[in-house]
Amino acid sequence: MSRRSASALVALGVLGAVGVLVWPASTAAVSEPQKPAARPFGAACSVYVEGSTATAHCHNPYLDTDRVQLHVECERWWDVDADSAPVDLGPTGRATLTERCWKEIRSVRVSHLRR
């Protein structure tokens, strides 16, 4: 065997080995496992402000218990902000939450916590 043909044979062997190492054994697509869909959550709350009083009417249409709480921020710097006691709403549960400021209300929100 000549030196040239030996070099060619070695080059083919190297290319073949690289091809085996680089080329995937299977080109079939591998799918990622599906995550289960998140269950819907969160009570529907309607908030009303009348003067210095805020009221939230909440209804939980879902299976998971939702702990709702009304948070009222007062407009005046000296007026103390108020948070209602938390209420656990089970499926089809309803609750009315009320808080107030001495003077005007700046903002009102209802927080939700999955229980």
Rank of each mutant, 00 (worst) to 15 (best):
A44E: 10
D88M: 04
V14H: 08
E99D: 14
G93F: 04
S26A: 11
P33L: 06
R76M: 10
H57M: 14
T98C: 01
P40E: 05
A37L: 14
P91T: 12
R67H: 00
L97C: 09
A6K: 10
V72P: 02
R100T: 12
T53F: 07
A11Y: 07
H71I: 14
T55R: 12
T98L: 01
V80G: 00
P33H: 04
T92N: 13
A82P: 03
S84G: 14
V110K: 01
P61I: 08
V108C: 10
A38W: 01
K35W: 07
L70S: 08
P61F: 01
L15A: 15
G19K: 04
Q34I: 12
V80D: 09
E104Y: 03
T53H: 00
R3L: 12
S7M: 15
P36T: 09
E99R: 10
C58L: 06
V10N: 07
G51T: 00
A43C: 04
P61S: 01
L15F: 14
V10M: 12
D81M: 01
S26Y: 03
S111M: 07
R114G: 01
R94G: 01
P33E: 09
V10L: 15
A6R: 14
A43L: 05
I105Q: 04
S26M: 03
C101T: 03
V68I: 12
V22P: 04
C45Q: 04
V47F: 08
E104N: 11
R115Y: 03
S7C: 11
S84K: 08
V22L: 15
S52M: 00
K35F: 09
E104W: 02
V87C: 02
L113Y: 09
A8N: 09
P33C: 02
R114V: 10
R67V: 13
V22A: 15
E104R: 13
D79R: 05
E50S: 15
A82D: 13
T65W: 11
T53A: 05
